[in-house]
Design a protein around this nucleic acid. Sequence first.
DNA 1: AACGGCTGCAACCGCGTGTAC
DNA 2: CGTACACGCGGTTGCAGCCGT
Length: 339
Amino acid sequence: MRKPDMMGKDNTTITTATINTNNSIKSKLRKGLWSPEEDEKLIRYMITKGQGCWSDIARNAGLQRCGKSCRLRWINYLRPDLKRGAFSPQEEELIIHLHSILGNRWSQIAARLPGRTDNEIKNFWNSTLKKRLKISSNNNTSSPNNSDSSDPRDVMGGIMPMNEHDLMTMCMDSSSSTSSSSMQSMHANMALTDQFDPFPLLSNRYDMTGAAGFLDNNMAACLNHNDDGVVHGGYGALDPNKMGLESDFSLPPLESRSIEDNSSTPIDVKTHNNNNHFKNSSFNNTDHHHHIQTSNNVVVEDLFGFGNHGQGENFRMGEWDFEGLMQDMSYFPSLDFQV
DNA sequence: AACGGCTGCAACCGCGTGTAC
DNA sequence: CGTACACGCGGTTGCAGCCGT
């Protein structure tokens, strides 16, 4: 939503940037809000072709957008595993806590909040939580360093104090960072209630009644059509009881860490329409190979990788062991991620 | 109803990093 | 090693809609 250079007929900015390979082809790249048609093009391309080079995607999908714009649109809005809607109190609490530890590392925070994007969390923080904490810290005038600083230890304004010792203690205990129970709980987080909608766009943003036809058959099989005709996410039809999942919350691990080494196990999407949702999904983000093989052997890469798709990252030198840090969930005895 | 201020959030920008050549 | 390109991240912008007057 930038200041338009030149407005297209649907209020979309058209910039005169050129992406020519031979100086003869000059494309006018669109900017600004995405139209439903553009969204559909991108979704269709991603579903059928899978993820690849974004500039290629932009070109091959027939979008007059730069690859960067396509990537952003997909990651922040179109990808199926996004959870939309207001943040729950539990999520708010978790964001506050994570921000107290991680600071403005939105992508890492987002990696802990399945279905949420870094952009979404960042916006939520800047627009809501920051103000709330500021007010809270103003009320608590005893704290001299109340600010919206990004310093992890400053931000909390006394709400959830964490001292150096706590931090270090938590950092040291990272031994149990990989557990199937946390995986299960993560699934439970996703599955509890039907909040999780792998096609939020389809069911919420646009009434895609009858529009699922453009989807690959394999994908269409994942959609439920309710009486109202609106397409609802098929993966949302979950029953935690059947899944035997724990209801107590444990923080989902960074997707960059492989939880279950099932990355080599193809997933038959059809089987997941009823149960075992994503149980075999690989959370290993490092290899960028979230292969989901459908019953027709259409391999869809990364389409349904949980967590925040491409946003987890390997820790670099000098970073804390956030994984170990996250293990101490005593901060959130009531967190169950029920939204 | 009209207006103006405020807020939420989608999208862009700039920069750092990784990788291929 | 240097360069080019693509990707990912955090910061910022500005439109659209809400709300109070």
